[in-house]
Design a protein around this nucleic acid. Structure first.
Lengths: 326, 326
DNA sequence: CTGTTAGCGCCTTCAT
DNA sequence: ATGAAGGCGCTAACAG
């Protein structure tokens, strides 16, 4: 491994000069020496040792991203946006997947702290229960060490956050559906303590003028939607799944039972997952700028503002074939 | 930031002892001191400084993963497997997305070299053209620096590789389709120089007993399949898209033109993307253990064998509704 | 503008 | 089993 010192010697300059041209920011080196150094570096095949650099500088160039599941297109899209934004800032991202295990989430934050990561981005909403205390403590520790934290979802950790307007988005969807003549709804509501799910569910229900909707809880994924769909009451004309992936599960369940969408029942989701755009019937949903969410979180975490900043992101109702007017 | 030295002082032991307790491998420290150190570390909230550790040890704990696009479920699944496997080895994964830009691929490998990454995993097949020379050079440099590299796809870089049996998988599919009575095929073949695409296309074509198939080139993604599908000849009874995502595009194109699948034409893909499992009609395809691909690549790269190891992975033909017997 | 010189935090022989 | 001391490769004041 060739070191900076090798380069300096080879170029006949001091270590400091070599450092300045190869890594330093303010370019205060004469053109002659600069060229010599650059050539020497090229000839020797020098590579910066990031570990040494990080140690000396006291700050690294990694951004940590913690998601539940990369296979879930929701998180994949967020990760994509985050990676792009990080790259634009000359940072690299380290991803951790928790598969919904709170302990792993904590472990990742801890690990990222050890890496002296510049920032950590948490995607996937925190569940409302006490186990979150551990995470909170770990995050505080991380921040005390000088790290920045940004959360995608809701503002409840007192950090920078990209807040998704789940309530109002769901409400807007409810209104659109109501305007199309629907009165009897069922909500595939997801886990009773998952804040994102609860917000969407409540926002939707609260905006309904007619009778209270049937609420069916279950897992936040495809199979959760599939299972929940089996419990839907007979007079329901429109089903709202709190995310697109669940809606897909519901769609499959309906198909299995010979229930046609949208002829027999209308169906709507939330997120507008791109990979699902070719589904038939096309899913009515609330579009979220997923990649943006990730990118903005990175921007927030990297901006050196003082207090926690909260950015609000609205969804947009998109009516497609899976819903039919009554 | 509390350092190891702080911990040592607080525990009344030497720096070396503290190091051995907190990070070293062979545990050669007395129970008494060990306890003291652990308590001190806990009280002070000590966190290993990975950068310092990496510098001192000369080797870090990061594995680099370079993919084209995290939003593509194919890569997302691979990334998922890689992250899990890495975690099992106490490593973390840094992902880079190239969005099919060869220059970015090189840049990432370079960056990972600077990070002294333990290994880099390259997913997404190398294109056959000369621009690959740059990548090759960069990889050699990386390996000369002591890094391991593993490739997912085909064995052509002389590195550890998880080789996907694209040819034989496609051939098996062709045979199955032929056995169902199909004779006139079209292949949505992807880019003419993308090895994975070419192998699948050729493997399929070579296994056909009847007339030569119509071959239509285009991008390797959803829109590529969509566009290519418009050029399909009138007598074709079965279409093979070289990956599932392209098949989805083709499906959409058929739908737009009122061509029914599988009544009017049969359709098959490759990969068996889980997210697409609920498509209607369900896609006939060749199943690949995607997450395994990523995990195995990590295992390969981490195993300290001597020469390059090549692991072969077979696909499995899965017949679903999108194909109908003639 | 360029060179000297301390560290950054940890690991690891080498003695004891 | 434990401690002392020299680096790992780079950056960042300080001097010239």
């Amino acid at each position: 491994m060739v070191t900076l010192e090798d380069v300096a010697r080879h170029a006949g300059v001091s270590l400091a000069t070599a450092s300045r041209v190869l890594n330093g920011s303010a370019r205060q080196v004469g053109a002659g020496l600069r060229a010599k150094v650059e050539q020497a570096a090229a000839e020797l095949g020098y590579r910066t040792n990031v570990a040494a650099q990080t140690l000396a500088r006291g700050a690294g160039n990694v951004i940590g991203l913690v998601v539940h599941d990369l296979v879930d297109p929701y998180f994949a899209a967020i990760a994509d946006g985050a990676v792009r934004a990080a790259e634009a800032h000359g940072m690299v991202v380290m991803v951790g997947t928790t598969h919904r295990d709170p302990a792993k989430e904590i472990a990742y934050v801890s690990s990222l702290g050890a890496q002296r990561a510049r920032a950590v981005i948490l995607a996937g909403s925190r569940t409302d229960d006490p186990s979150a205390a551990g995470l909170r403590a770990e995050l505080d520790r991380y921040r005390n060490g000088g790290g920045r934290v940004a959360v995608i979802g809701q503002d409840l950790l007192g950090t920078d956050t990209v807040a998704v307007a789940n309530r109002s988005g769901a409400a807007a969807l409810a209104e659109a559906l109501t305007a199309m003549g629907h009165r009897h709804f069922a909500i595939l509501a997801g886990p009773p303590r998952l804040i994102t799910a609860v917000d969407r569910c409540e926002g939707f229900a609260a905006a309904l003028p007619g009778p209270a909707p049937q609420i069916i809880h279950g897992p936040f994924d495809r199979d959760g939607g599939h299972t929940a769909a089996h419990s839907i009451g007979p007079d329901v004309t429109c089903v709202f799944a709190v995310n697109d992936v669940m809606a897909v599960g519901a769609l499959a369940a309906f198909r299995e039972r010979g229930i046609r969408v949208p002829e027999d029942v209308s169906l709507a989701g939330f997120d507008d997952i791109a990979t699902l755009r070719d589904l038939v019937p096309a899913l009515t949903t609330v579009r979220l700028p997923l990649a943006d969410l990730g990118a903005r979180a990175v921007e927030l975490a990297l901006a050196d503002d003082d207090g926690p900043t909260v950015v609000h992101v609205e969804g947009e109702v998109v009516i497609r074939e899976s819903v039919r007017a009554r």
